[in-house]
Design a protein around this nucleic acid. Structure first.
Lengths: 235, 235
DNA sequence: CGTGCGCTTGACTTTTTTCAATAAAGGTGG
DNA sequence: CCACCTTTATTGAAAAAAGTCAAGCGCACG
């Protein structure tokens, strides 16, 4: 595909003038990665902005023992590595291709120039970062306030809403990856899925999961009891 | 204090021209909150940017059962509530005064105008958001990859570095709040502190904690074994 | 001087992880 | 098309970590 055309489809750059798109096209570098190939490592020098072209990218942290926590999964059009661009000089996590993946890379200097001449990009970037902050806040909430079944229920419900699939959904990641996303391990996830099936909440077969009792799942996820009172003094 | 003067000391607005500072001063609203008073609640409409004047502010999430997870503690000069400004229209968490607190509030509209006319503020904001993203990434890592003793050790070491205190530190929050910050409960924290004391790692007396064995703490925190190899295939 | 809040400790329960073994699924090359 | 190999998923038994409930202490503050 023509670089300028492809860039124009990136939500982050939507609304830019043709001239500006051409500038971007002039500095972009296209890269390809195999499934499982590392794009950057935690601690690496951050020299620019990445945008997923095709395929998916996994952003994750690694414990000393090798256990991984997935922070994000990104698909076509989504930028990543921006935080390192504006804050520290180093990536705070790993990035790896989940499939065969093409990446658009925008070097730091040129990008910052462009932003300075074009505040709208900045606002767009601010929106992206804000949204991520929000996602993280929710992830933190889930990880620290809920147990695995609640996290799983929340994820399943969220997933149906995100993809529009109503009650029958098909995971686009392995269950091991889902476990990592939920902050647990495959064994635990497997058991929780089995238990939910026994309880008649879901039906699980391979990557296909049918939600049989949405109400029950919502309860599990903590969608009830949304305290109407102010939490003052709730320390 | 004169508003313009005070605004000039906010890192976020550093480097602005006197004219722009005056614009900000013209739109700012000053508010006071008591210790424990709610500044905004999760789900509230977000109508502007907050900056801490004096005192400290606690940003937190609440589980249905009332357990809280502290996301941030902010002090003078630090902005909060920005994410809601650029992304969704609602706050993703609660904010509450930790002391008697004065807040500077900048309404949305005027601020966005100013940003559009002044890309440098945008870059500054991008840096702030990026930094927070980074903090969150670390918090998520800690919460999901480490057990409480490791999180506590990491916090203690981080705290000494942040405050410059070398081996003897004085908490500026209650232990219950520290527990919440670490994603656990006071009882567990208490036990972990006791255990660490028995092991000769620390000496704890009220809010004063002395680090007796930094090396041991670093090991606990997982500062060893930083895998030098690429984590390829480490799924 | 008492009330309340923060902190600690003990006994107990629940949740999750670990370790190990096995089964199922998917892709590759003959 | 099948045998083989790797990856992914499941299950059991045991251990570990963290949370709940309940009681008690100490200290600050009115």
């Amino acid at each position: 595909m023509d670089p300028a055309e492809q860039i124009a489809t990136i939500p982050l750059f939507e609304g830019l003038l043709p001239q500006q798109l051409r500038e971007l096209a002039a500095i972009v570098r296209r890269q390809t990665y195999e499934r499982g190939q590392l794009i950057f490592a935690e601690g690496d020098e951050a020299s620019g902005l990445y945008v997923v072209g095709q395929g998916r990218v996994k952003i994750f942290k690694l414990s000393p023992e090798g256990k991984e926590q997935i922070l994000h999964l990104f698909g076509p059009g989504e930028p990543f590595g921006e935080a390192a661009l504006f804050a520290g000089r180093h990536f705070p996590a790993y990035a790896e291709g989940l499939d065969q993946t093409t990446i658009l890379f925008f070097p730091r200097r040129a990008l910052i120039d462009l932003i300075q001449r074009n505040p709208d990009i900045a606002l767009s970037l601010l929106a992206v970062l804000s949204l991520r902050l929000r996602v993280f806040a929710n992830l933190i909430e889930d990880l620290s306030l809920k147990e695995v079944p609640a996290r799983l229920a929340a994820y399943l419900l969220y997933f149906t809403r995100r993809t529009g699939q109503s009650a029958e959904l098909e995971l686009d990641i392995t269950k091991s990856q889902l476990a990592s996303l939920l902050g647990t391990i495959p064994e635990t996830l497997s058991r929780v899925l089995a238990r939910m099936s026994r309880q008649g909440l879901i039906e699980s077969e391979g990557r296909r999961i049918k939600l049989l009792d949405k109400k029950g799942l919502e309860e599990l996820a903590g969608y009830d009891l949304r305290l109407p009172e102010s939490p003052q003094g709730e320390e």
